[in-house]
């Protein structure tokens, strides 16, 4: 009986820790983004609140919480309330299947460092990232504003297109690891990370997840130059904050997934596994921010061209080649 309670306590501790770390990390990623973008533009970035501006996320939070929670007069109220949550919750749920460290042994029992080791983890991720599309689409629709609606439509089209190439780029990984479980996929990369076998799939996946978290150069649903703020134009206060935090949680989670699928997850020499996992994930986050400081936004037709005429066929060819290769070496 005590063993049962111990299990539950350990699990709850793990859950709480993951939740806390992800939310804090997302808040500080906002700060990191502002800093790094400032450096790219030869500025200093936020440095007034606390030492080196480190309390800036806290100040932002207070600001967002005390802002007016505005709902447009003709908005569809319930959907309007629901949309931010639909954008943020799937993002954080995806992290449940990501193994972020080697299994620990505490008090004689194994504690796998993953919230839920689903045997269909990869499909779970694809499904949840499809649900996240609803946040954008519903948010854009419920605001009852032309800019929001345009942003929502763009988001829908973009996410559906790139989900395809993202899913297809992961098929070779499943073929190599012979499992949908992310824990097994990490285990399969104990010696060689899959990026060595699958550089093309890695590039396709990287481009697709950038589109998937709606970041420059694929930030068409927001496109502040044309659509005010796109699908979240009408949102204010903490509801806007939820969209915002959702985007950064998405960065962390998708970075973690790229790590898991291609960079060998928590495997790495010398340093502890959790540290390796964090380093790789944060490197992806840095890359996303760096990319935002570098590339301009794609035009809508260029976006569709890249997704349907380049990435998807390439991913299909890649699957074929991987298949032949696997048959040949057997």
């Amino acid at each position: 009986m005590t063993a049962f309670y111990l299990d539950i306590a350990l699990f709850a501790a793990k859950l709480g820790l993951v939740f806390f770390v992800i939310l804090t990390l997302a808040a500080y990623l906002v700060f990191a983004e502002r800093k790094i973008l400032a450096w790219v533009q030869d500025r200093k970035g936020p440095n007034r609140v606390g030492p080196f501006g480190l309390l800036q996320p806290l100040a932002d939070l207070i600001k967002l919480l005390t802002k007016e929670d505005f709902v447009p007069a003709a908005a569809d109220k319930w959907l309007f309330y629901l949309a931010p949550a639909m954008a943020a919750i799937p993002a954080i749920l995806i992290f449940a299947v990501i193994p972020f460290g080697a299994p620990l042994t505490i008090a004689g029992r194994q504690l796998p460092l993953v919230v839920a080791d689903l045997n269909v983890g990869l499909l779970f991720f694809l499904a949840l990232s499809s649900i996240a599309v609803y946040g954008v689409a519903i948010g854009g629709w419920a605001s009852n504003s032309k800019y929001s609606l345009l942003g929502g439509i763009r988001g829908l089209a973009q996410l559906i297109s790139y989900e395809l190439s993202m899913g297809l780029s992961l098929v070779p990984i499943v073929m190599l690891a012979r499992s949908f479980s992310l824990t097994d996929i990490v285990e399969a990369q104990a010696t060689v990370p899959f990026i060595v076998y699958q550089p093309l799939a890695f590039i396709i996946f990287l481009i697709s997840i950038t589109a998937e978290c709606k970041r420059i150069p694929f930030d068409l649903p927001e496109a502040e130059g044309e659509l005010v703020a796109g699908f979240h134009s009408e949102y204010s206060g903490m509801r806007f904050g939820l969209f915002f935090v959702g985007e950064y949680i998405n960065i962390i989670v998708l970075g973690g997934l790229a790590t898991t699928f291609f960079l060998g997850g928590w495997h790495g020499p010398l340093l502890p596994p959790v540290v390796w996992f964090s380093l790789k994930t944060l490197a992806f986050a840095f890359f996303f921010i760096w990319m935002r400081g570098t590339l301009p936004r794609l035009r809508y037709d260029q976006l569709m061209h890249l997704g349907w005429k380049v990435l998807t066929p390439l991913a299909l060819v890649n699957i074929l080649v991987t298949g032949w290769w696997l048959v040949l070496i057997r």
């Binding site: 030869d42 760096w290 400081g293 570098t294």
Partner: peptide, 16 residues
Amino acid sequence: GGFRITLSHMLRKPVT
């Protein structure tokens, strides 16, 4: 090349 330029600016002293 674009990535290289932004990286070099990242390491430059800010003009602020």
